[in-house]
Design a protein around this nucleic acid. Structure first.
Lengths: 196, 196
DNA sequence: CGCCAGTCTGGCAGTCACTGCCAACCTGTC
DNA sequence: GACAGGTTGGCAGTGACTGCCAGACTGGCG
C-alpha cells in the first residue's frame, strides 16, 4: 500500500494526527462552532496559515481522512466474486472500511457524534459520500449487467443510494443511542424493512 | 391556507420574489460562487443588511422556500388512507409537493441544476430534507404499526431514507439529462431495482 | 564546505458571508 | 401632531479562507 514512506512523510502524519487531536479536544470542550481555527492553530503550535495548508477547511479537521476510505470501498466491492449479490458486495465494502479505521471505538463514537450533531459537518460528510456513490456506479452497473454510459443508470444508482441511506440511518441511530446499540444490527433492520 | 394576507405581506412577497429573480439571473450569468451577496443586494436595490434579513444565508436564495413544502409533505403522507402502502403514501407525498411548486418547469430545472452542481447548495438542500425525514418518522412508524419512542425506529427510518435516496437519485439523473428524461420514470426505476 | 533549487512555514493583508448595534424612517393610532 | 412598533440602512466587527512574499530548512552537486 505504501512504497516510499519517507521519514518526512511520517513526521507529517504525526503532526496531522496531533492537530486533529487537539482540535477534537477543543471541540469537546467548547463545541464545534464556538471553536475558532485560530484557537486550534495556537493550541497545536502551528501558524494559522499552515493549519489551513494541512486542512483546507475546518470541517476537514473532523472528516478529512475519507478520501482513502472511498478508494478502499470501491476496491473492496470490485473485488467481490461475481456470484456475490450486489447487496452483499456493498455490505462487504462497508464492513471492510469499518474495520480499516485506525481510531479507537471511543473516538469513532466521538467523531460520529460530532458529525451527526453539527449541520455543516454532516453536510460535508454527505458530500464526500456522494463522491463515493459516483465512483461505485460503474462497478455496480457491471455487477448488475448494465452497460455503463455517460450518465449513470437509475437502477444502479438507486441501489447504491439506498445502501448509503441505510448505512447513514444506522449510523445516526447508533449515535443517538450513545453507541450502545449494535450499528450492524440497525443496518440489517433498516435494509430488511426496505427489501422485505 | 392564508387568512390575513395583508397588503404589506403581499408586497413583501413580491420583494422576496424579485430578489430571488435577480439572484438567479446573476447566478446564471456568473455562476453561484462568483456572485457576491453585495452584488445581489445592489442589483436588487436593497441594502446588504436587509438582504440578509430576508434570506439568512446565500444558499437560502436558492433553496429557501422549502420549509412550507416539508409541512405539506408530512400532511399529505399522514392524510393517506391506512390501507395505502407505506411506499405509496410516501410517493403520494412527493407527487403532491411536486405539483405544489409555484415555479415554471423551466425554472425548476434551472434551480435543480444549480443545486446539483454546487456542493454547498446541495449540502444545504440535503440538510433541509433531513429535517423532513425526521418529521416523517412518527407518521411512518404509526403506519407501519411501530410504537414511536424517543429515538426513531431503524425500520421506519430506513424506508424513509430509501425513498428520499431514490427521489434524490431520480432528481440528479433528471438534471444530468438536462430535464429531457422523465423524473417520475427514473424514480420508479430506482425504487423497482431496490425492491425487486 | 558552500551553493542552489525545491519545499515548508509564518505573517500580512484582503475577500466574503454573516451579525450586532444604532440611528433614521415609515405606518397606523389616538 | 405626538407616539409606539416594526423596518431599513449603514457601520464596524468576527471568522473562515486565500494570495503573496519573505525567511528557514532540506537534499543534491561541485
Amino acid at each position: 500500500m505504501e512504497k516510499p514512506a519517507t521519514l518526512w512523510d511520517r513526521s507529517r502524519q504525526a503532526v496531522v494526527a496531533e492537530i486533529v487531536d487537539t482540535a477534537l479536544t477543543l471541540f469537546a470542550e467548547q463545541g464545534y462552532e464556538a471553536t475558532t481555527m485560530a484557537q486550534v492553530a495556537t493550541r497545536a503550535g502551528v501558524s494559522q496559515r499552515s493549519l489551513f495548508r494541512y486542512f483546507g477547511t475546518k470541517e476537514d479537521l473532523v472528516c478529512g481522512d475519507q478520501e482513502a476510505l472511498g478508494d478502499l470501498l470501491v476496491a473492496t466491492v470490485e473485488a467481490q466474486a461475481p456470484e456475490v449479490s450486489t447487496w452483499d458486495a456493498l455490505r462487504a465494502g462497508f464492513t471492510t472500511i469499518l474495520a480499516a479505521s485506525n481510531h479507537t471505538p471511543q473516538r469513532v463514537l466521538e467523531i460520529s457524534t460530532l458529525i451527526f450533531t453539527n449541520a455543516p459537518l454532516r453536510a460535508r460528510y454527505f458530500e464526500k459520500r456522494l463522491k463515493w456513490q459516483h465512483s461505485l456506479a460503474p462497478v455496480i452497473e457491471k455487477r448488475m449487467g448494465i452497460d455503463s454510459g455517460e450518465i449513470p443508470d437509475a437502477r444502479a444508482m438507486g441501489v447504491i443510494a439506498t445502501v448509503f441511506a441505510c448505512v447513514d440511518t444506522a449510523s445516526e441511530l447508533w449515535v443517538r443511542h450513545g453507541g450502545k446499540a449494535d450499528a450492524f444490527e440497525l443496518y440489517e433492520q433498516a435494509l430488511a424493512a426496505v427489501r422485505g
